[in-house]
Design a protein around this nucleic acid. Structure first.
Length: 442
DNA sequence: CCTGCGAATCAATGTAGAAC
DNA sequence: GTTCTACATTGATTCGCAGG
């Protein structure tokens, strides 16, 4: 395999003037890595080389104290952390661009977690048709910023799934590739603009479009609203108040959001991951810019998206999916069981919890949607039990009365007790509050 | 360019205890 | 006895660096 390396023409870093970020109404602004690629083309050098020189303000790598990232982690330049901040500062220092942060997600640094877990695609995602259209128009290809988050899987213009592998060598493309051309594979040189585009599942199309739109909306409106986790927490509290009278559990059940995550965000001021944040925005059918914005929102449970069909965040946790399915099957089975099982074997639900070795709350957190049915079944069982008690008491009284009649004795309380066929509570009125009835006499 | 490791931190679990 | 909240703790994932 041949390797090639590009070196800049001069030794001095050119000052970058006359460049402005690409943008369009339909796709928003360009990402910072895409912009650096074009600057690299202007300097005839590799994008990552230019990035290093830009950060250090030096082509020769003499300055050792600059923070440089690995080229395989170049998505960080578009993110919301330290790498993005230093890149923006360097670019503003070395060029006539005054607001480079619009090409990154720094505007939501106060909202999402600083580690930016599950935030940006590690490998570059692109739409072949968009690339082809730019090329046909005689413009350099560019990556809109809204393609970067992991929640964006679709091109808003062509409604086709974004691509992430070279169609020829199947390799992942980096955000800062080896060569300053975004539309050619950095390993085999294959034309990425000519790849065939596919549209995903029809039932997921709306959700994919919603999520991509959410990201674009956020990028476009970054100047107008400052998003913060405090606001996010406040908005969640408001939604809880409006939809379920402030009961977290019920709100969580309604929307399918995990109760404990909800509480972590509201009480501990934990920052949500981006994918969780936009998932909640989707479920509440609220633009993300407003869900973490400063003004009060009116939430309408009638338009909620209760079911999210895309798995956004990787499971952090503990109970494997199959185990939860098993748990659910066992519970549904029990719910279908005849009422006798519930009346005479009360320990059944807790025995399921014991069998799966989980607490009451883990059980509820996973099977919250069945909680209503379980409560109803419990109520039904207790009613049934009450009826059984009444019927039993009647039966005992009748037997005692028959016995006394056979012995030609008065069915008085004293004789009834003597017969040994009734319980004391059957004939002595239990002292309760007002309205209580005494012994059964009819 | 790859791998391993520790720090950091969000997500999820279990437990105590209060309200009803 | 059931349901709910608060909180400590455990688990998972990512970052960022060092070294090969």
């Amino acid at each position: 395999m041949t390797t090639a390396q590009l070196y800049p023409l001069g030794t001095a870093l050119k000052r970058f003037a006359g460049h402005t970020p690409r943008r369009s109404d339909a796709a928003g602004v360009e990402s910072l890595t895409s912009f650096i690629c074009r600057l690299a083309l202007d300097h005839y050098c590799a994008p990552h080389r230019l990035y290093g020189a830009l950060i250090a303000n030096d082509w020769t790598k003499r300055k050792v104290d600059f923070k440089k990232i690995r080229s395989a982690e170049s998505q960080l330049i578009n993110s919301l952390g330290e790498a993005a901040r230093s890149s923006v500062e360097a670019l503003q220092r070395e060029s006539d661009i005054t607001d480079a942060s619009e090409m990154t997600f720094l505007s939501i640094a106060g909202l999402c977690d600083q580690k930016a877990k599950h935030f940006l695609h590690k490998g570059r995602h692109w739409c072949a048709q968009c690339y082809m259209e730019s090329r046909n128009a005689g413009e350099p290809t560019w990556d809109p910023l809204y393609w970067a988050p992991t929640t964006t899987t679709i091109c808003l213009i062509h409604r086709t799934l974004l691509q992430q592998f070279c169609p020829h060598c199947k390799l992942i493309q980096r955000h800062l590739p080896k060569f300053p051309f975004l539309d050619f594979c950095e390993y085999c040189g294959c034309d990425l603009a000519s790849g065939s585009s596919t549209s995903g599942d029809a039932d997921q199309l709306d959700q994919r479009m919603w999520l991509a739109n959410g990201a674009l909306d956020l990028i476009k409106n970054r100047q107008d609203t400052i998003l913060s986790r405090e606001n996010f927490s406040l908005r969640l509290n408001e939604a809880t108040l409006i939809c379920s009278n402030g009961v977290f559990e019920e709100f969580a059940r309604m929307t399918g959001i995990n109760t404990c995550s909800l509480r972590n965000w509201q009480l501990k001021h934990a920052a949500p991951t981006w994918s969780n944040f936009i998932d909640i925005a989707y479920r509440l059918n609220t633009p993300p810019t407003q869900l973490a914005g400063p003004s009060t929102l009116i939430f309408d449970p009638a338009v909620f998206n209760y079911r999210s069909s895309l798995r956004l965040d990787k499971q952090h946790r503990h109970l494997p999916k199959e185990r939860i399915e098993e748990l659910r099957r066992a519970t549904v089975e029990l719910l279908k069981a005849p009422i006798d099982v519930w009346v005479f074997r009360n320990g059944k639900l807790s025995s399921i919890q014991k069998q799966f070795d989980i607490s009451y709350w883990t059980f509820k957190r996973h099977l919250g949607d069945l909680a209503g049915q379980i409560s109803a079944k419990r109520l039904e069982a207790s009613e049934y039990r009450k009826k059984l008690t009444v019927a039993g008491r009647r039966k005992r009284l009748r037997a005692a009365r028959d016995k006394l009649a056979g012995m030609e004795l008065e069915p008085s309380v004293r004789n009834m007790k003597k017969s040994g066929l009734v319980k004391v509570s059957d004939v002595i009125s239990v002292r309760r509050g007002k309205g209580s009835s005494g012994a059964e006499t009819s």
